[in-house]
Design a protein around this nucleic acid. Structure first.
Length: 139
DNA sequence: GCCAACGTTGGC
DNA sequence: GCCAACGTTGGC
């Protein structure tokens, strides 16, 4: 299994919206960036991801699971854009903030820190374990 | 609200 | 195929 991070502006699509979709999940659509799209094409059923709120909050707030592999993005006719579906698994007990991540030597190399604008990004297993520990959830 | 970084677009 | 212009993102 691989690990990922999905970034969203809470004002557009937040963790509460994701939770409301339950086990049905929802398309992670609207991504118009090749790098992000390519990562989604690599995802497998059951892969786990962090749900991260950008902008004001800047924190990991939940855990999601890939529940449909890459397929055409229903919000566009442009065949270039694919996306996966994800569903909420569990809310974190403690949000892990960007400040915490930057301050943690084990996490300082995360894509989130190095390339803050990439909206879908891979997370290493070590990073996954570390953030889960900080968030108070079972990895 | 500002600005830097970056990715995409389109003209040549 | 290059590169300038432009738009968007996201941290501060």
């Amino acid at each position: 299994m691989r690990y990922w991070l999905f970034k969203s502006e809470p004002s557009t699509w937040g963790w509460n919206d994701q939770l409301a979709k339950g086990d049905t999940g929802e398309e992670w659509n609207g991504v118009r960036n090749y790098q992000a799209r390519n990562f989604m094409r690599e995802m497998a059923l059951g892969d786990r991801g962090f749900f991260y709120h950008s902008q004001k909050e800047r924190a990991v707030v939940g855990i999601v699971e890939v529940c449909a592999t890459s397929h055409p993005d229903s919000t566009t006719d442009d065949p270039r854009w694919d996306c996966v579906d994800i569903k909420a698994v569990v809310s974190v007990n403690a949000p892990v903030t960007l400040d915490q991540i930057k301050a943690d030597p084990e996490l300082a190399d995360m894509v989130l820190v190095k390339n803050s604008r990439l909206s879908v990004q891979p997370v290493t297993e070590a990073e996954w374990q570390r953030i889960c520990a900080l968030a108070g959830v079972d990895a």
